[in-house]
Every structure is written in structure tokens, then in C-alpha cells.
Computed example of a mutant assay.
Amino acid sequence: MRLSRFLVIAFVMLLGSSTSALARDQFRVCWSNDAGALPWGYAAQQKIVAKWARKYRISIDLVRVDDATDAVKQYTAGQFDGCTMNNLQALSLPAAAGIDTTALLINNFSAGNDGILLRGKNLRAQDLKGKEVHLAKNSVAHYLLVRALESVQLSEDDVSVTPTAEADLLAAYGAGDIAAVAAWNPTLAQLKAAGDSTLVFSSHRIPGEIVQLLAVNTDTLRANPALGRALTGAWFETMQRMRATDDKGAATLSAIAKGAGIELEDYEAQRRKNRSFYSARSAVTFAESPGLPAAMERMSAFAFSHGMLGKATSAQSIGISFANGVVIGSPANIKLRFDSAFMQVAADGRL
């Protein structure tokens, strides 16, 4: 009995020392040039992040990484404590690599920012059959193509997918060398302007499936809830500034566009194609909706079928948890968590 009690005490002490080892006051978070992530640049430049970090007696170094996928890979490699990413990236990069990751903030979902173009007029998704579709392989554009094909009872076997770097799409499409592309804004808008084409499918048709997040290492977040509180507070203060209808709101949007090196008109066009959560309460409502687990179940199936889940033996190998105890995939191997707790604290005014 004494030995058993000793082992329990030793385990608790070990657990406590492990948690303490993770506890710290300096953090690094990266953001990329996706339209939904651009407000982070403004929040850093205007010292909003620094203000909230000071409140919780920590420091947060917010770093811009231009390539979104590279940013997530650096987070996965442990170079950052958190990073902006979409839900497919969160699943297929850190979660698939065994890095337990929490979606701290749900920023928005794509409602037209991703689309598929076919060269020609008055075309439909059915006209994709037999076409060679150029896209960034294993990206949300690839996922969108699969969803477009499913919507008209087609599959990837009915098209030819040609992996093409986003930077190469404009030149190839503008020269008339390719007939079909799947892309996201601002590239999508530029492609549409460059040639005679029809938007045959967009993320407007699958609302709530392509989601922009700020994700944080789960162990780091558990050991340092101040990081979650500071980032949540900074984000929703920025959202409050953006949604203002006066001159201050306009100035905020102009500053975000300028900081990202794009024209305000282009930024506004992208913003209109996203459904942003400007209030914490609306973000919580989305996070706790049954549509999110359903979307992630579809995304898991896509990721597994395209070899994006590492050593997973099925689409259910990686567990994903949601609000109210909902889990899809393996409950014993949860590596991606959609946790509304910090957003709920913000909604309740308790930050």
C-alpha cells in the first residue's frame, strides 16, 4: 500500500515538473499572407499584441512568413509556438506529424475565396469531365476540386490533375496553355481577369468547410494559458476595430492592406469572400456547430485518400476533438482540437 502511494505521489511530482518545464513567458507565433491572417500584421504593428501580452506578463514575437505552407511546416518543426493555418493544413501537417495542436481561434471560413475556373463561357462543373486541372496538389484548392466533382456525381478519375505551383498558374493560364485551374484569392481573381473563363464552382457552395485558424501547440497552451488569453484578446480587439463603420474602421482596413503590401480594393475584395467572425460569440457558435465535425470528417477522408496523413492506416487514425465532447477518428490519438474555451472567455467578457 505504501509503495503504491509512493508511486502515485512520484507520478504527480513528475507530471508537475514536466508542466513546469513548459511554463515560460516568451513565445513566437507566425502568420502568413492569407487574407484571413493579415490582421495579425496590423495587431503587431499597432502594438495590440504587445499590450495584451503585457497584461499577462508575457512577450509574444509575431513573425510574418510569406509562404503559408512554409509557415505551418516551421510551426510543425517546433520553430513557433503557434501559427495561422487552414484546417486542412492543421490536419495534414502538425496533426499528421504527431504534434498535438489546438485551434485556439477560428478566424473565418472561405465563402468564395477559393474557386475553379474553366476557359470559355456559360460552362458548368459537369464540363470539368475530361479536363486537365492545374492546381497546388494536396491544398484546399485540390479539396475544392474533389467537392466540385462530387457535386455533379463525378470523381477525380474523370479529370487529370496536374500539380502546378500557385506562382506558375498566372503565366500558364494567361498564355492560354491550360483550360482549367483551381486556386484561391488573390490568384483566383487575377486568373479570372486574365482570360475568357467561367467560375464553375467556388467555396461559396461549401460554406464552413475551408476554415482559417490560429493554432497553438496544445502542450504549450495547457502549460501557459496566458498565451491563449493574450492572443484571444488581441485578435478580438483587432476585429472590433475592423468592424467599426466610422473613419477609424476605414483607417484600420487601409492600414492592414498597406502593411500587407496590397491595394485596399484588392484586400476588400478578398475580405468579402470570407465569412469572418468579428465577435467572439459568433466564433463560439460556429465552433460548437455540428457542421464543423462533419466538415472535418470529409476533410479527413480527402487527406487520407491523398496520402497526407503520414503513417495513418485509415481516415480515422487521427482523432479530432470538438466542443461538447464530440470526437471524430481515434479518441486515443487526438492530435487536433477545436477548443472554444478561450473564445468563450472572450465572449463572456472575462479576459
Rank of each mutant, 00 (worst) to 15 (best):
residue 82 G to L: 07
residue 109 F to V: 11
residue 86 N to H: 09
residue 95 A to W: 03
residue 110 S to E: 13
residue 85 M to C: 15
residue 118 L to N: 09
residue 90 A to D: 01
residue 117 L to V: 13
residue 85 M to I: 06
residue 119 R to K: 13
residue 85 M to E: 09
residue 103 A to S: 12
residue 74 Q to G: 09
residue 90 A to E: 04
residue 81 D to S: 02
residue 83 C to H: 07
residue 80 F to C: 08
residue 95 A to S: 09
residue 77 A to F: 01
residue 101 T to R: 04
residue 91 L to R: 06
residue 70 D to G: 10
residue 119 R to S: 15
residue 118 L to K: 12
residue 88 L to Q: 10
residue 92 S to G: 03
residue 104 L to W: 06
residue 117 L to S: 13
residue 96 A to I: 03
residue 92 S to V: 02
residue 88 L to R: 10
residue 78 G to C: 09
residue 94 P to Y: 02
residue 74 Q to F: 09
residue 76 T to M: 01
residue 76 T to V: 00
residue 87 N to Q: 05
residue 106 I to C: 04
residue 115 G to M: 12
residue 109 F to C: 08
residue 88 L to H: 08
residue 94 P to K: 00
residue 76 T to W: 03
residue 86 N to V: 11
residue 87 N to D: 13
residue 89 Q to N: 08
residue 116 I to A: 15
residue 105 L to N: 06
residue 71 A to Q: 10
residue 71 A to Y: 07
residue 109 F to P: 02
residue 94 P to Q: 01
residue 111 A to L: 15
residue 102 T to K: 08
residue 85 M to L: 12
residue 113 N to H: 15
residue 102 T to E: 08
residue 102 T to I: 09
residue 82 G to A: 11
residue 96 A to V: 02
residue 110 S to T: 10
residue 87 N to G: 06
residue 99 I to V: 14
residue 96 A to N: 05
residue 108 N to F: 05
residue 83 C to D: 11
residue 116 I to G: 14
residue 77 A to I: 05
residue 101 T to K: 04
residue 96 A to R: 04
residue 77 A to E: 10
residue 99 I to H: 13
residue 73 K to E: 08
residue 92 S to Q: 12
residue 98 G to A: 03
residue 93 L to Y: 07
residue 102 T to C: 09
residue 76 T to F: 00
residue 113 N to S: 14
residue 111 A to Y: 13
